[in-house]
Amino acid sequence: MNKKRHHWIVRVTHWVNFVAIVIMVGSGLRIFNAYPAFARKGEIFCCYPFEHKPIPAWLTFGRWLGGARHWHFAMMWVLVVNGLVYLAFVYLHGEWRDLVPRKGDIRDSWQMVKFYAFRRKDHPHQGKHNALQKTAYFLLPIAGALAVLTGIAIWKPVQLSWLTAMFGGYVWARYWHFIAMLAIVILSVVHVFMVFAVDPYSITSMITGNYDPSLSPEARNARPFYHLFPRRATVAPTPPPPETT
């Protein structure tokens, strides 16, 4: 039986966000490659082990510094407006309840880790998202907000010097911008991996909005690459046929 899982606003903002993040990260890395370091001229920077090592070109977007800057400064508006629409919707529609951290989340996250590590047999009971997922979806907008604020801080370090100063000055704001990008990339890569390895059925739900609860990871008792395909209906108490994965 199909259930409505994602409102169309969530679905649209999700895919817009996907395009915006890919272009912002790619063009940002191209901009970074014009000076792949953080140190002020004549100084040494403490906290980046790869100073002056450029990011591989295939990970970048925009081809040249000027082109990447145009993409970055155009797409930033899409990212911000889209993010605000999403957050406003999640707030007004009450979906934030599925996403904000609660007291039992640490315990539940630990149970999920145990389950994924085969230290627990059954998938922990969950609401819309499991505890690890929930944490990731809660952290992503925070990393996004940090990326936007540090981005503004290095876009306008003189006109908005108070903001730049809040992040420790231009050099550090640029560093935090990089770290925020890394956090977004890590969360997104893990998210995409888990979608394919645990819940590929959620892709359809992020397109059509419909989801079949009997295919949920909890119903399939699914770990990464385990029980990807649903169990056959067991009407009679016959043992299930061998799974093919």
Binding site: R63, W64, H70, A74
Partner: peptide
């Protein structure tokens, strides 16, 4: 296809528009 590319040509107008707004 997108890797290290300049992006679609058709986007140039949009990018110019964004620059003017910026």
């Amino acid at each position: 296809a997108a890797c290290n590319s300049r992006g679609p040509k058709a986007a140039d107008k949009l990018l110019k528009y964004a620059e003017r707004k910026n």
